[in-house]
Design a protein around this nucleic acid. Structure first.
Lengths: 330, 330
DNA sequence: GCGGGAAGTGACAACGTTGTCAAAAGACAA
DNA sequence: TTGTCTTTTGACAACGTTGTCACTTCCCGC
């Protein structure tokens, strides 16, 4: 900037004014400055700028996801980015891998880079550590799962209602022995979905049978093994409800191997690409990650624009998509 | 920092030393400083630090991807992140959507935040604009596609060889009329794959028939339409090679609709989740996005560590995975 | 020609750090 | 005790910006 000022024979303050498109610089001077900064290919240093600026904004937000490569998380990421770019805001993204400590470390790394806001798909179970950040002026929005011991904006899916609807759908197709395969019970969405299953089973006056439930299944392989194992014992379920996309895949794989995929009904939570091309197509309770991300980003930016109203809690509804697997009768 | 210094009754320089774990601070002073910064919950400001530091490093890199939500890109992203976190480096990610201008804007936004390095899956066809960045000391690595008019490190897949292998595989199963569905010809990988098809068709002494080729297909829908249209005319191919994952999905969808999925052979470039569960399973030429991302990040960090040797050009080999669809005979 | 106001410009300090260098304190030998 | 050397500490400037405020022009009306 100093060099540009020297070349254009103005003060650096004038260069700053031109760079920031501030009013009150005569057109001819502005042209001279622009030409000089072109010639020296000057690059504005946003970090220095945000250091000095009164609002201290870095035009950067941090996003903590379960895994940037997971289809659900990356869809969130993308829709957040779409809102952010419109405002010239960049996104720092990181994967927590369901690890509380990684979540905290990411947040701390974001904080030391002075992000303006945070969108967190939380792994941890105590978010009091974020109070300091918030006091420092960082806006914080939770997506997919609520925070613990912290009052903050949230954008969640209706997990309980979605699963209950899935169970009702299976019951309506004549099933009474409905199995459930769920993710880590420490993940709040997984706990919610499990609760939805239990509630609807009770509501349907079906006697609960714990032999039809397997929890804490992480990833395709473990879900597949659990499903295979469940079908090796009696009583066998006539239908399965799976609480997460990878679990759905694992369960379908097991059913295929056992040659049961056309006899056992299957409803999965969370949509999967290609689910419609399988035989049978997989009936799912689909979330709308794009809507979740968009809403979260909108809330975040409203906060950054000064909205100080009480915490908002948004619910993005799920939708059942019937494709065949959920309509198999016992 | 000033407040911490005041509370601990030391100079801010001593606080700085403690924060940076510099040697030569007496343990008792260090304890006092730590206690003070704990009490005021002081957060180190990395932007101010990197502004002042002699190396000027921000411990942040920028990654330009086609789309952070695309499975291939997000797998790249994840493997880059894994290398980066080990070094305490954070990742700014953005989607270019195959738009040259968005690519340039992202790079410029990254540059103004003074990222230490860039990993780019390029959309553009002229990367001379990056010379200024590189002169400023930013390390740059290209992934998936090579840069144009710029000499830089690259990590690419063996597109031509992979597609040729796929064509050979189909020929070995008795096919002579092999159709090809490709992505935008402006995308260099798409052009390469198309070239691989043409080369192997020629090498196999098959008479080239342009009626069996459709290019510039973006996304599932257009690929599906193109495949349907191709099968509505004669001559019909007996096998299809599809040049990208969404195109593979579109083609399979069309074949399913036409009831041809067990009669027409299909080999896709790029693996797809669930491809093994379709009937028939889809034979693919699989890339290894994790290896590509890892290699790119390793090269980038070697550059940041001072490696000034000539540009490196890595090729990550593809691998054929046979699952049924590619082994259908005419 | 003068006063008054608007428009344009620049000097300087400050943002939160760290590099440099000098000063203070401590350790040890003579 | 003194002198020398080492260790620990701090004062100050600087990184690349922008906010504040004051100064210089210029224009207009009288």
């Amino acid at each position: 900037m100093r060099e540009v000022a020297a070349l254009a024979k103005v003060s650096i303050k004038t260069v700053s004014r031109v760079v920031n498109r501030e009013a009150g610089v005569s057109p001819q001077l502005a042209r001279r400055v622009l030409a000089a900064s072109e010639r020296l290919d000057y690059r504005h240093n946003l970090t220095a700028s945000s250091l000095r600026r009164s609002d201290g904004r870095s035009a950067t937000i941090g996003v903590v996801l379960e895994d940037v490569a997971n289809p659900f998380s990356s869809a969130l990421h993308r829709s957040i980015e779409d809102i952010a770019v419109r405002r010239g805001v960049l996104v720092l993204a990181g994967s927590s891998d369901e690890d509380e400590e990684r979540e905290r470390k990411l947040v701390s790394a974001f904080a030391s880079r002075r992000v303006d806001g945070l969108i967190i798909q939380p792994a941890g179970h105590d978010h009091t550590y974020l109070m300091a950040e918030r006091k420092a002026g960082t806006a914080i929005v939770f997506v997919d799962r609520p925070p613990a011991f912290l009052d903050a904006d949230t954008v969640l899916a209706d997990n309980v209602a979605g699963v209950r609807r899935g169970v009702r759908h299976l019951v309506a197709h004549g099933h009474r022995r409905i199995g459930y395969l769920g993710d880590l019970h420490t993940i709040s969405t997984a706990a919610e979905r499990h609760r939805g299953y239990l509630e609807e089973i009770a509501a349907q006056k079906i006697k609960f049978d714990e032999r039809l439930v397997r929890l804490d299944l992480r990833g395709i392989e473990r879900a597949e093994a659990a499903a295979r194992e469940m079908f090796s014992r009696s009583p066998r379920p006539t239908a399965l409800l799976t609480g997460q996309n990878l679990i759905t895949i694992g369960a379908f794989r097991a059913l295929r191997q056992l040659g049961l995929h056309r006899q056992i009904a299957l409803v999965g939570f969370d949509d999967i690409l290609l689910a419609d091309l399988l035989e049978p197509g997989i009936t799912v309770i689909a979330q709308d990650p794009a809507a979740i991300g968009r809403t979260a980003a909108e809330v975040l930016f409203r906060r950054l624009d000064g909205d100080r109203s009480p915490s908002e809690h948004h619910t993005v509804v799920t939708q059942m998509i019937t494709r065949g697997s959920g309509e198999i009768r016992p």
